[in-house]
Amino acid sequence: MLLGPALALSALLFAIGVTGVLVRRNAIVIYMCVELMLNAVNLSFVALSTAHGISGQVFVFFVMTVAAAEAAVGLAIILAIFRHHKSVNLSNINLLKG
């Protein structure tokens, strides 16, 4: 059974994603890291479905659908930000500062 290594890989990918979100400033890269986290979760689902039945694999489809929708909306927002600021560096985007 590859469950242990699969989950370890999933955790590693998720950690890379989190680290990327935390340390990078470029909106595109952060976005890609978010996708990485989603897919790390997908990997866990698939791996765990061997032990807990088919529902894990079904859930992966939902995650992929949501990720596709998120890609559309997220990229559109990033484009809009770029048009406004001529930059996608999140350090410059702090309009919500209290």
């Binding site: 979100v21 935390l22 999140l90 985007i93 702090n94 919500l96 500062k97 209290g98």
Partner: peptide, 18 residues
């Protein structure tokens, strides 16, 4: 004091979230 939390930086929010 509360408004100090509102840095406006997404990274900061993510750290708190994490």
């Amino acid at each position: 004091l509360g408004s100090r939390l509102q840095s406006g930086l997404v990274g900061g929010y993510v750290v708190l979230f994490l």
